[in-house]
């Protein structure tokens, strides 16, 4: 039985933070994960349900100097069509084009995809690659947490009960930065990743630097792979480097076997997609 006692729909971040300070609450944005999880009993509602969709300042993409802010309520569809994303963070658009279905992209928010903290969360992997920071607001103040320090386990993160994730900040990548995103599932659409990969770096004269590598669905949380980054940093992107990086990538992860894929197949896909992206950017 649903135990929701209060429903709130604040129109400002300040009001939302005040509501969160008042006691345990469940936040709903697009609801594409929440509805399924509460419906199946995997998650239960807190006494207060806060619909944050009316906080218009939390939706949209803006650029201030070298920092791009993606509001938490920005939808996946927004990422596909936004000019700032297309110019500076194109890998997020690539990701959005592989995300679920049109209907789900229209409803799903970036903030929700992050807070759901799924090991397979599509948007998280390229944002790790872009070194995003999440912006958390409480009635007591605001803090920023690097995305690769945000997750603590499947469905778990460092966000506190009184905090609202209002957006992510991403520094504009340096000149010459190239990246890619790959995701594999048996279907081209409406698919949860068996494994996903995002790789990026500055490619100059065939040499890659400032390398960032992120993986999804191969660990309890989406992860950065320091080992793969080291294997690539400062190297010429030739066949040998790419193949070696694929090998490191695949052996650096320790995924589980479940109904979707075996651990071996997930490692295999990590290698294939890492090499594929490196070939694309080289």
């Amino acid at each position: 039985m649903s135990n929701i006692e209060n429903y709130l729909a604040p129109s400002s971040i300040e009001d939302a933070a005040a509501a969160l300070a008042a006691g345990p609450a469940t936040i709903v944005a697009g609801g594409t994960d929440l509805m399924l999880q509460t419906g199946s009993g995997q998650k239960t509602y807190a006494p207060t349900l806060i619909n944050i969709q009316k906080i218009t300042e939390m939706r949209g993409i803006s650029k201030d100097g070298d920092t791009i802010r993606i509001g938490a309520l920005t939808t996946i569809t927004d990422l596909l069509t936004d000019a700032i994303i297309a110019e500076h963070l194109p890998v997020l658009a690539t990701m959005a084009d592989k995300f679920a279905s049109d209907q789900i992209r229209n409803a799903s928010s970036i903030g929700g995809n992050i807070c759901n903290a799924s090991p397979a969360g599509d948007s998280i992997v390229p944002m790790l690659m872009y070194k995003a920071e999440v912006v958390l607001v409480a009635s007591t103040g605001t803090r920023k947490v690097p995305l690769n320090e945000f997750f603590t386990g499947p469905g778990k993160s460092v966000i506190q009960e009184n905090e609202l994730l209002i957006g992510v900040d991403i520094a504009v990548p340096p000149a010459g930065f190239k990246g890619g995103f790959g995701k594999f599932g048996p279907r081209p659409a409406l698919e949860i990743a068996m494994a996903s990969v995002s790789v990026g770096g500055v490619v100059k004269d065939g040499v890659i630097s400032d390398v960032r590598v992120a993986f999804g669905a191969v660990a309890p949380t989406p992860i950065r792979s320091a080992e793969t980054e080291v294997a690539l940093e400062g190297k010429k992107l030739d066949e040998e480097t790419i193949s070696a990086a694929g090998e490191v990538a695949s052996s650096s992860v320790n995924p589980i076997t479940d109904v979707r894929a075996s651990d071996w197949y997930r490692r295999h896909l990590i290698r294939v997609m890492t090499e594929e992206i490196l070939n694309d950017v080289s």
């Binding site: 048996p186 279907r187 081209p188 659409a189 109904v259």
Partner: peptide, 16 residues
């Protein structure tokens, strides 16, 4: 039954 949902029971969708 380990996959009693449309996420993990893979019916064919339009693009395939």
């Amino acid at each position: 039954v380990k996959n009693p949902n449309f996420r993990d029971y893979k019916v064919v969708t339009a693009p395939e």
